[in-house]
């Protein structure tokens, strides 16, 4: 259409080059994130296989053995158990509490309280993990130590381990899960709530039988994000988990007959051991394998979260 106009007007052609270069620059910038993702997987992946190819550790032994000795033998099963139990216990605490907070803000809180509360919860999204770790170290650990020793009637527990780690992680992921759950509940149309109330349902019945099921897939994406953060959290957990090569829990001779002492997660092992690993040593390779395990689990979590997101109705 503008060919007639553009004839004899070289500015347009100059502009066309600029348009092309602009397009190219923006497209290349967008590709950076793809390149970075490939880099992460390529480097972590290729390094991680050297545990089995270069250091000749059998995969079965590596994943199933519980003996972790930087010089002689490398088995990570206790750390896997540590990480999984940390995630599970954190979820047991965090999911009901986050849901309650989300339900409160979305359905129960009086109007004047809603938005201040939401803003307050959102502010905690930004608090650095090292602050949560420090708080765990100077408040939660002594609290749990005193409490357990009071129950057991002596000094048997130093307070470090799975429980304080799960408490710290709970308060870290709670704002995330609660705000996403809140958004999911807000997306449920008002008509659905009215339909339930009009049938003579109480608010409790409407929330538990209509609202939460309807918001379910959206809530689940929040929970999955919480799992991913709990699994990947390093520093806050390192402050309180105790960093020992033991199972997170076990039997004890003393009341309450359950040992919940110092243990480790996959991430804290990375943090504490990497400085000691010389490049190319079995320990160094093993740490990359641990990283790869974490990477694969987070990728699976992303996939699950996307599946839930696709199931969202509202």
């Amino acid at each position: 259409m503008i060919t007639n106009l553009s004839k004899g007007r070289p500015t347009i052609r100059k502009g066309a080059t600029a348009e092309f270069l602009g397009h190219l620059w923006f497209a290349l910038s967008a590709l950076v994130v793809v390149v970075l993702l490939v880099l992460v997987y390529y480097f972590v992946g290729s390094q991680s296989f050297q545990t089995f190819t270069q250091s000749h550790i059998s995969p079965a032994d590596f994943f199933l053995s519980s003996n972790w000795d930087a010089q002689n033998h490398l088995g990570i099963s206790y750390f896997i158990i540590g990480s999984l139990s940390l995630v599970l216990l954190s979820l047991v605490f965090a999911v009901p509490i986050s849901l309650a907070v989300a339900v409160f803000i979305s359905e129960i809180a009086p109007k004047w309280l809603k938005y201040p509360l939401l803003r307050a919860i959102e502010l905690f999204l930004g608090i650095p993990s090292v602050i949560f770790g420090l708080f765990g170290l100077i408040v939660i650990v002594p609290l749990i130590r005193n409490f357990l020793n009071l129950i057991a009637g002596g000094i048997f527990y130093n307070g470090y381990g799975l429980v304080p780690a799960a408490v710290v992680v709970t308060f870290m992921i709670l704002p995330t899960v609660a705000t996403i759950a809140y958004d999911a509940m807000q997306a449920v149309p008002r008509e659905l709530r009215e339909g339930s109330y009009a049938l003579g349902a109480t608010r409790r019945q409407t929330i538990s039988k209509v609202l939460i099921p309807a918001a379910g897939p959206g809530i689940m994406t929040g929970v999955i994000l919480g799992i991913a953060r709990a699994l990947g959290e390093t520093v806050a957990v390192a402050f309180v988990i105790g960093n020992s090569q033991h199972l997170p829990f076990g039997l004890s001779n003393y009341f309450p007959y359950l040992y919940i002492g110092p243990t480790s997660a996959l991430t804290t092992q990375l943090l504490f051991n990497f400085k000691e690993a010389t490049v190319g040593s079995p320990l160094y390779n093993a740490l990359w394998t641990i990283s790869f395990v974490l990477l694969v689990i987070s990728a699976i979590l992303v996939a699950v979260s996307r599946a839930f997101a696709a199931k969202r109705i509202y």
């Binding site: 994130v33 990375l270 974490l294 987070s298």
Partner: peptide, 28 residues
């Protein structure tokens, strides 16, 4: 779709692992 997938997956990588990658790429 690829871009969405990449941003979502990259943002889910634990930060300690990005740190180790940084070590690999920049420190060594």
């Amino acid at each position: 779709k690829i871009l969405r997938f990449a941003t979502e997956t990259l943002s889910s990588v634990p930060s300690i692992i990005i740190g180790l990658l940084g070590f690999l790429l920049f420190v060594t």
